[in-house]
Simulated scan of single mutants.
Amino acid sequence: MNISVVIPLLNEEESLQELYDWIAKVMQSNQFLYEVVFIDDGSTDTSWEIIEKLSQEHSQVKGIRFQRNYGKSQALDAGFNLAKGDVVITMDADLQDSPDEIPELYNLIIKENYDLVSGWKKKRYDNVITKNIPSKLFNWAARKTSGLSLHDFNCGLKAYKNEVIKTVKVSGEMHRYIPVLAKNEGFHNIGEKIVQHQARKYGVTKFGIDRFINGFLDLITISFLSKFGKRPMHFFGLWGTLMFFFGFFSAFYIGAMKLYRLSQGLKTILVTSNPWFYIALTSMVIGTLLFLAGFIGELIIKSTPQQKHYKIKKQLNF
């Protein structure tokens, strides 16, 4: 199979039929073998009924229905696990991503041998204050932190080699950082393509300003995990050891100075009257706790199996 189109969605009943017809037209005109995987992330409207109808009419349509709303990352992970295409295209279901971009994205993966191609909505039709400006700040921070020179990390329109989506595990709200996750797994041929962005035709956006706050917090998380996620002792153990020895030598110095003054017959004060005693003691305690945190983290990584953080209620045509 040439292409799998993976589409996570939440309450997009107005756009689904139009979106599928558009995708099918593009695929047929380019003679692609394809499948369209809709992942219903707990919709409360008639989205799932429309997906069921499409799957009965078209064998290329496949559906996954979650038990409840788990989030876009979990929806993408479920779609990635079941996608069979040599090239996997992700896009949003709100018609703001254009299926006309699919052939060129496919060619970039197959002919240019990119591992991943991320869309860049250079001209956007979103609200400037609530989406465009925060998005620019977010993408600037992501570029500086990750080392990837992408302009639009959060663009839903992306293309992947199949081996990439089978390797990368997406959880939490890490869908924004799939290029970074792919880079961390050794896929370095990552490109970018300017794509057409369209004004929302139906409904309202499902994301608020809080997604950018969460995005920055996730950026810190993924920056840490990319460096120390598989070796937490290298971080916690290092700082724990440094703090312990700082406290130990501070305490040793305090004790040595007291003994020296006693040997010289000089007046001394109680060790507990010296504020450095408490600084040294606190430093040793914190250092020990950090070292234990690193040790426990190593044990957790080695003993915890990979788990899915979502429950699929129904599947269609798989």
Rank of each mutant, 00 (worst) to 15 (best):
N2F: 14
V6Q: 11
P8R: 08
L9F: 06
E14G: 04
Y20I: 05
Y20W: 15
W22S: 14
I23E: 01
M27W: 06
Y34V: 12
E35H: 05
E35T: 14
V36F: 00
D41T: 13
D41H: 08
D41W: 09
G42Y: 12
D45K: 01
T46A: 05
S47D: 10
W48I: 09
W48C: 03
E49F: 01
E52T: 11
H58F: 13
V61R: 04
K62N: 09
R65S: 09
R65M: 11
F66E: 07
N69H: 15
G71F: 08
A75M: 06
A78C: 06
A78S: 11
G79C: 08
G79M: 07
A83F: 00
K84M: 12
G85D: 12
D86H: 06
D86W: 00
V87P: 04
V87L: 00
V87I: 13
I89A: 02
D92L: 04
D94A: 07
D94Q: 04
L95I: 14
S98F: 03
P99W: 05
D100L: 11
E101C: 07
I102C: 02
P103T: 07
Y106E: 05
N107Y: 05
K111M: 05
Y114Q: 07
V117K: 01
G119F: 13
K123Y: 14
T130I: 08
N132E: 13
A141L: 13
A141M: 10
A142E: 06
R143S: 05
T145Y: 01
T145N: 03
S149R: 08
H151W: 08
D152G: 04
D152R: 01
K169L: 08
V170A: 00
S171N: 12
S171E: 13
H175E: 15
V180W: 11
K183A: 13
E185G: 01
G186Y: 09
G186N: 10
F187Q: 01
H188K: 10
G191I: 09
V195N: 03
Q196I: 13
Q196H: 03
H197L: 07
Y202W: 14
V204P: 00
T205E: 03
K206Y: 01
K206L: 06
I209Q: 05
I209H: 02
R211F: 01
N214R: 11
F216S: 09
D218K: 03
L219G: 12
F224Q: 10
F224M: 12
F224S: 03
S226F: 02
R231L: 09
H234P: 00
F236A: 11
T241I: 06
L242E: 02
F244M: 12
F245R: 06
G247C: 04
F248I: 06
F248N: 04
F252E: 08
I254C: 00
A256F: 12
A256G: 07
S263G: 14
G265F: 05
N274E: 12
W276R: 01
F277T: 15
T282I: 10
L292A: 09
F295H: 10
G297Q: 06
G297W: 06
I300V: 15
I301N: 10
K302E: 13
S303C: 02
Y310L: 08
K313P: 01
K314L: 09
Q315K: 15
F318G: 10
